[in-house]
């Protein structure tokens, strides 16, 4: 029981990170029907920017932790959002209106480019960050010596995710930008006829997705303590899986899918074998898609005949 609880906490933490990345996939898919394969790399860049900010602040002697974390989050979000905007502008917008596979290929190209760019500029070796936030809350401490604890870091990750998700849901459901975003998702041409600047709305979608991925990147850095230029690939594939599992195009679906993938992975490693955790995650994806082709919360596409 204690073991189960501990795994549950770990799973939710991991799932939060996946969920935040998955939002970026699902939003972009929703609005332009394209899988942005470079999104994993955006996450990786986010964590590198966070690390750079941390080191820069340490170099000038700023060590007050809450301030450091706040600056890390803000700078990472802003800079990564700029990356997201630029990528859309350079690699995807010129190809809008060309055949469907073209932006998919540039997305893969962009992903390779970003990986190599970071490898060359930052070096291929893993970058460590000593743990900054230690300790935690002990929830259960039974005589056999099994301890259930939730670390401060995990609390921060889960809380941060909840706050971001709440803000993001508010943005989508209540603000004019959110309405435009949903309108473009349903009928881009019609939205533009109502005076909606579709290109700008798409750019903002990339910006929002990238800034959420940046937060995920920073939390990954703080949680695991090591990053390298390759982390974007695996995290990206997992988050993409989460988006598909939840129903691609559905925002609550992305979050739910993220949690599901995180939990599956953690429980599988906890009870069976760590080596096969990815196999487990992807098998469950395959099974779910066989029985629910549009994912957990996705709307089935109705084709008019």
């Amino acid at each position: 029981m204690e073991y189960f609880l501990q795994q549950l906490i770990n799973g939710i933490t991991l799932g939060s990170i996946y969920g935040l990345i998955a939002i970026g996939y699902t939003m972009v898919y929703g609005i332009i029907g394209m899988i942005n394969f470079a999104h994993g790399e955006i996450f990786m860049i986010g964590s590198f920017i966070a690390l750079t900010v941390f080191l820069a602040l340490a170099a000038i002697g700023v060590t007050f932790l809450p301030l450091v974390l706040l600056l890390m989050v803000i700078v990472a979000m802003v800079c990564t959002a700029a990356w997201g905007w630029t990528i859309e502008r350079v690699a995807y917008r010129p190809l809008r209106g060309s055949f469907r596979l073209a932006p998919l290929i540039t997305a893969i190209g962009m992903s390779i480019f970003l990986q190599n760019f970071v490898q060359i500029t930052q070096g291929a070796r893993v970058k460590p960050l000593p743990p900054q936030i230690q300790g935690g809350l002990i929830l259960m401490n039974n005589p056999n010596g099994i301890v259930v604890q939730i670390s401060w870091m995990q609390i921060i990750i889960i809380a941060m995710t909840i706050v971001l998700m709440a803000g993001f849901s508010l943005l989508i459901s209540k603000t004019s930008l959110g309405r435009q975003q949903r309108a473009c998702e349903q009928d881009r041409k019609m939205a533009s006829l109502l005076g909606v600047n579709v290109d700008r709305t798409i750019s903002l979608t990339f910006v929002i997705g990238a800034s959420l991925a940046a937060v995920a990147g920073m939390m990954y850095l703080l949680y695991y303590g090591v990053i390298d230029f390759y982390i974007g690939f695996i995290a990206g594939v997992k988050a993409f899986t989460a988006a598909v599992l939840g129903g691609i195009g559905s925002l609550p679906g992305a979050m739910l899918g993220g949690l599901a993938i995180g939990l599956i992975e953690t429980f599988w490693s906890g009870y069976f074998s760590v080596e096969y955790k990815d196999v487990a995650a992807f098998s469950i994806l395959a099974i779910v898609l066989i029985f629910m082709p549009s994912g957990l919360l996705g709307r089935p596409e109705v084709e008019k005949v």
Binding site: S176, L177, R179, Q180, L194, G195, V196
Partner: peptide, 8 residues
């Protein structure tokens, strides 16, 4: 949605 320019 049609009035979003004002709102933005």
């Amino acid at each position: 949605v049609a009035q979003h320019n004002k709102l933005m």
